[in-house]
Design a protein around this nucleic acid. Structure first.
Lengths: 401, 401
DNA sequence: CTGAAAGCGCTTACAG
DNA sequence: CTGAAAGCGCTTACAG
């Protein structure tokens, strides 16, 4: 058996013994140069100030020692973690893996790691993610926040951690109070938020009591200078289109199932508007979560209405719709003959089960968010005003309606 | 409107202006103590050496300034990232989100972030993850490696980054060459691997040529001292059980669809053993990936056999099985009357589509892996020998077979 | 052109 | 009991 060269090298053997990773200092000692010179040679494509022979020696040693730069040290020195955070309700909701994949596809080649935070759609979970992020664990954040608003996120933006929000806006806004939350005096709001977070969680209590704390600072409604971008589809219009589709199919009693917080609110608005304009009564079933279990529960309560039950059910997401479908089938009903069911998201399973739904381009949403974030992270990128990036949705007709 | 106390504080306002996060130094300056004292007070529950008044002043200032420790600085100083890496083929494969969730559920309360690396089941992707990890980006790794073997991972273990492997072993081993890969001379192998990685990717070429490079170092088959743990179900026995189930149902022509690399190999072994013992012919269809598309392709080629087509098809994972189901239905066949289909994993969709499958407890797999990793990360934990942790599988009978 | 020093923010061992 | 210094590994501005 041939012994590889490095095995004969005293330095390598020594390193193997010590079991610690080699540093620039080790290379410098072996090459007889300063540690700073090693850094130069390793990082710059050209080093006119270093003799070719020295450069070659350093490079060779780095290879032999399998030198890898210490990432935490670089992070501290450069004030860049090369990490992107992705804050989502729940990775097991099939909508999100595709989004995460889109994120990673852009992030990885650019040298960024991706950190996942699950919030369960809870205000505590979202706040916890923000707190962690304030410790400088990531350079930027892509987040689907059900509870936190611009001023809460301002804490990050102020600390130069750009945020890209998912599903945070409608094209035409102003109808929901949520959209009027813009802060004016950025400095004051930032200090205020910091104060509240630091001293206690008062603002969360305030929030829970449905008193938007931001009002304190947002007398002037001009949009602030926060570099918070949004990547979204027009949820309200999409839900409206789906509702019109159902009405067009002859449905008159259409119920909607949705979660207490999150994108369901905007989707509900689209449904509500179309139903009202058509002179039809709305029928909302609200649950805590967007799960299949919640959908099944909702369907059961809908079926309990007997002959007055709806002829069509609109799940605010596919999980709800799928759970509803299953419950209807379990009750002996045939879809779509006995009852039509439609959803929202177009998760992979929707296709397999023939669910008519609204397609959101999750991969593109994720990759666009990553691109936007990385752009912000470029020198000078932090200064640009927040962008609203809208992607197209699509009604996907399948067999369930 | 009441002005919160902190808004009147000159220091807070100043901080808001500077837009930089406050450090211990800032608190120290404001409190008139040394930065080290601030660190002490902030980190220790009790500081007998610091007067109560001073301590209170520091704590109060930290609150007002909304001080958050700088995570990268802590990481460098403590040599702990408080981050766990999860290396998986593809987060969009529905088996993995549940596993990731299990991981997070244990990791988050313990203070660990979770980093996700997708490898696409490619050797390049796995090697890239290892290289990144060698830069000290995480304290430990949970990984499903399709290609890398113990010696490749030894690079991490040697650098005190513990690894927990998923699906890396059978209960009864020795049948597949894969299981005889244990290294003896740890030091030598580590240096060797480091050498190969540093200088070139020769070892990967060697691997591709099916010459296990580990052989060079593994003359002595005694299991090494590497702290590499495994968390797994008995894939071979599970596949055997499923095959027996199909034979028990009267099937004689049973085909198996699998991916080129990964857990399919072990599952194939179980299928093969049972088929051979029953005097039946095996029928393998191998594709590059474990996707629904691959399953559909495989089913099409199976159906092209006409009257000699199999009566049952065993997908090495649920995605393959679901794709196969869809292709069979698209071809006008009814399941299970015309052809039975079974899978492996029990992803959420399997339930919705009535797929008979092998249930793997993915959440438990993930949480057990996290617990094992965190245990290793405790003082002294690195020394314990690698454990093999087996969880129970379960045959879930549904309507597809 | 060349090499040594400062400093990122933190924790802990150590000197007064 | 109290407070200042060293040092984690790195990059870059700066002095010779």
């Amino acid at each position: 058996m041939e012994i590889p060269r490095a095995m004969d090298d005293r330095r390598v053997r020594h390193k193997a013994r010590s079991s610690a990773r080699p540093t620039q200092k080790d290379i410098a000692a072996a090459a007889g140069v300063s540690q700073a010179t090693v850094s130069m040679v390793l990082n710059k494509a050209e080093t006119p100030s270093v003799p070719d022979a020295t450069r070659a020696r350093i490079l060779k040693l780095a290879g032999e020692l399998a030198y890898q730069p210490n990432h935490p040290a670089r992070t501290l020195r450069n004030a860049r973690t090369m990490t992107l955070a992705c804050v989502i309700p729940d990775i097991t909701n099939p909508f999100y893996p595709g989004l995460v994949r889109g994120l990673q596809t852009i992030a990885a080649p650019a040298g960024y790691d991706v950190l996942i935070y699950d919030t369960d759609g809870l205000v505590e979970g979202e706040q916890r993610a923000i707190n962690w992020l304030q410790q400088g664990r990531a350079d930027g954040v892509v987040g689907a926040f059900f509870h936190l608003r611009a001023p809460d996120l301002a804490v990050l933006a102020r600390n130069t951690i750009p945020v890209v929000r998912l599903e945070s806006q409608n094209k035409a806004r102003g109808t929901l109070p949520i959209d009027s939350v813009f802060i004016d005096n950025t400095e004051a709001a930032a200090a205020m938020t910091r104060f509240l977070i630091g001293v206690s969680y008062t603002h969360l209590d305030v929030y829970k009591r449905q008193i938007p704390v931001v009002r304190l600072e947002s007398q002037n409604k001009a949009r602030g200078t926060l570099p918070i971008d949004s990547v979204f589809i027009d949820n309200t219009e999409a839900a409206a289109a789906m509702t019109r589709f159902l009405i067009g199919r002859g449905h008159r009693r259409i119920a909607m199932i949705l979660g207490e917080f999150g994108p369901g609110q905007r989707r509900a608005l689209g449904y509500e508007t179309v139903m009202r304009d058509a002179g039809l009564a709305t029928d909302f079933i609200t649950d805590k979560t967007y799960s299949a279990e919640a959908g099944a529960r909702a369907m059961q309560s809908l079926l309990a209405k007997g002959r007055k039950r709806p002829t069509a059910v609109f799940g605010a997401n596919d999980m709800l719709a799928l759970g509803a479908m299953q419950a209807a089938q379990a009750a002996g009903l045939t879809i779509p003959q006995d009852i039509a069911v439609v959803g929202f998201d177009d998760i992979p399973t929707a296709k397999l089960l023939g669910l008519t739904t609204v397609r959101q381009p999750e991969f593109e949403l994720g990759s666009l968010a990553a691109r936007t974030l990385i752009e912000r992270l470029q020198p000078g990128g932090l200064k640009a005003p927040g962008k609203s990036l809208e992607l197209k949705f699509e009604i996907v007709e399948r067999s369930s309606a």
